[in-house]
């Protein structure tokens, strides 16, 4: 049996929150276990505050779990160098952040951080094409871009490192419906054509149905159900999911 690309084993995370002068421990993720095969597209669906983003942050190692492990190609990521983990597992945030003053710099930054030599002079243009952005934008100031263009650029920036896994944290939640649909199609294409393993976080039930991929529903820090969204929604009797769907 092939080793899964990503294996999450009994992952839990507690955080300390401040309430005035008092500090309180809260459980953000509880005993999460999940296996993702190479080239698979998995949707992580759940309401706001369910722990979805924390799960992605743990996989990208922006945070440490309280207990449990994450394996990349069978190796515990805590045994790998953090920069290598983040090179192999890209993360695209909900709100795109522009880091430099030009698109070209934006796309060469990830390579500079890892001391990787650019293979071709057209590297930025190739990445722009990959995310369906006009190559004529290469020398433009990205701070002037629309939110949809910025999100595509953030996606291209992550792709510059040729990651094996791409984590997408609600990448369309800040976009209008047309831009949102275009990004969804783009991500599906990247998965299909490049064989990129994808974890797509969303709180949007309609989006999960539209993407039509296998999904894990997270509510209150735990995985409640896994399967195709339509099938789960049809058969479920789980009160938490019914509440989430507004059917209770």
């Amino acid at each position: 049996m092939p080793v899964p690309k990503l294996r999450i084993e009994n992952l839990s995370k507690t955080k300390v929150v401040r309430e005035g002068k008092k500090r309180r421990k809260i459980s953000v993720l509880r005993d999460i276990s999940l296996e993702i095969k190479s080239g698979e597209f998995i949707i992580i669906l759940g309401p706001s505050g369910a722990g979805k983003s924390t799960l992605l942050r743990l996989i990208n190692r922006l945070e440490e779990p309280s207990s449990g492990s994450i394996y990349l190609d069978g190796t515990n990521i805590s045994e790998l160098r953090t920069d290598r983990v983040r090179q192999r597992i890209g993360l695209v945030f909900q709100v795109p952040v522009i880091l430099t003053g030009s698109v070209r710099e934006e796309l060469s930054l990830p390579l500079e951080l890892h001391d990787i030599k650019v293979e071709s002079d057209n590297h930025p243009e190739e990445l722009l094409r990959m995310v369906s952005l006009d190559t004529g934008l290469a020398d433009r100031d990205p701070t002037q871009f629309s939110l949809g263009q910025k999100q595509r650029l953030a996606l291209a920036r992550s792709l510059a490192l040729k990651p094996e896994v791409l984590l997408l944290d609600e990448p369309t939640s800040a976009l209008d419906p047309a831009s949102s649909l275009a990004i969804e199609n783009l991500i599906l294409k990247l998965n299909r054509k490049m064989g990129l393993t994808i974890l797509f976080v969303t709180h949007n039930v309609e989006q999960a149905k539209r993407l039509g991929k296998d999904c894990a529903i997270i509510i209150d820090g735990g995985i409640i159900e896994t399967g195709k969204p339509e099938e789960i929604f049809e058969r479920t009797t789980n009160r938490a999911i019914l509440n989430y769907l507004g059917r209770s």
Binding site: T82, G90, V97, L99, L109, L113, H114, S158, L161
Partner: peptide, 16 residues
């Protein structure tokens, strides 16, 4: 914070 974490997520060191 957001900008720093976006750079870290690309594999930058905390110094970078």
């Amino acid at each position: 914070k957001e900008k720093i974490e976006a750079i870290l997520a690309l594999g930058a060191s905390s110094r970078q």
